[in-house]
Design a protein around this nucleic acid. Structure first.
Lengths: 210, 210
DNA sequence: CAAGTCATGTAACGCGTTACATGATTGG
DNA sequence: CCAATCATGTAACGCGTTACATGACTTG
């Protein structure tokens, strides 16, 4: 079966409010995409399939001129499947992380390039953190349109839960990225130390030759 | 192209010493698999392809009785590609994490099941940490056969580097898993708090009805 | 009137997954 | 002799990726 998480990411997005396929794709690029990325070419066909399966209904809406857009709305069946998915115990895949795999074999690397890669690692995760923090802030000050739409569809009692869990999710990603950064920082120091030692041993050998 | 990391995981493994396909598959289950998992059905064909491409050479060795096993050895070309891969700046995929995606929509979950899932999350990562710590210990006390084979093929000067980077890699995975655990622990507290508040509000409402 | 963005895809391809298959040999 | 382990795969399938395609409308 595969994990089919894209389905659930889409259901989750549409649980807040109806959206056109185009807007969904944009959201994936701009916000949800920072938790679950997907390209347009995967989103459009997936929406069609979900419509066929009765998880979504689509309406053709005019969109300026003669153009139309398909607006998708989640069905009760869609909500049910979303709920089932959330309540199902998650599957855990065995580890598969390129960056740690590479790190284990840095003996083969050029020190300078290895340091560069560590700095890239830090940069990448810093960027990620910034994105997530921006999204997190948008939740807390209620400026996220998706959140607002979700809240108006919920009873005030639920508002706190809805916000708190989303903030919690971002917090996890941020914490993990911070762990990556401090790991890479230790990596930079390690590369430097090992380089210096190798250098000084080489110097000694060279010196002893004379 | 895809990331093709399996190739490099295999090259990395075989950079230490020749191994039969069977032993490689076992290693993936027992040790390397905790950094980069792959099933037999992926490993065997991949080795054949890499042989065809000249990254590996294979020797048919007797294996008791009339049976034979194919022992694979890395070629110079294989070493070169491994080195190139390590020196190439890593690609970063956009985030795609089921567990954080799920967490963001815990509003739809049953509190009890959500707590169970958090506990499973903690358990999973604790198990992972134990595995990684065992592998890490095997590096430090030089009891890992792969490490020993790698070290005898290297000059004593390099020994420290070789060990240090592998330990470093495991440390990163361990640190990240610890971050996951403390996230999930905060999750448990959060679920509990929100549950209690919802409960007490419900109580008040019920009380006010009389 | 050209560039951007709205709007929706198709096609090719490969990695990775699950399930299944097979047959020899060794150890209890 | 029966179960485990040695030893090596095939087959089917789907998710995800990259590249490419197309045409209408809008804004500077």
């Amino acid at each position: 079966m595969g994990s089919m998480s894209l389905r659930y990411a889409l259901l989750a997005l549409l649980s807040a409010r109806p959206l056109s396929a185009y807007d969904i794709a944009k959201q994936f690029e701009a916000s949800v995409g920072y938790v679950w990325y997907a390209p347009d070419s995967q989103i459009y066909p997936q929406l069609r399939r979900m419509e066929d399966e009765g998880l979504l209904t689509a309406a053709e809406l005019p969109s300026g001129g003669r153009r139309t857009k398909r607006e998708y709305q989640i069905t009760d069946e869609g909500i049910n499947q979303l709920r089932d998915w959330i309540n199902t115990p998650a599957e855990y895949q065995r580890e598969r992380d390129v960056h740690h795999l590479r790190a284990a074999y840095l003996e083969w690397a050029d020190s300078e390039l290895a340091s560069q890669n560590m700095r890239r690692h830090i940069e990448f995760h810093q960027d990620q953190i910034e994105q997530w923090q921006a999204l997190r802030a948008g939740l807390i000050d209620r400026s996220s349109p998706t959140l607002v739409a979700r809240l108006v569809a919920a009873t005030p009692l639920e508002h706190q839960r809805i916000v708190a869990y989303k903030v919690f999710a971002y917090d996890g990603l941020i914490a993990r990225a911070r762990a990556e950064i401090s790991w890479a920082e230790r990596g930079l120091i390690l590369i430097d130390e090992l380089e210096r030692e190798a250098g000084s041993v080489a110097d000694q050998e060279q010196a002893s030759r004379f």
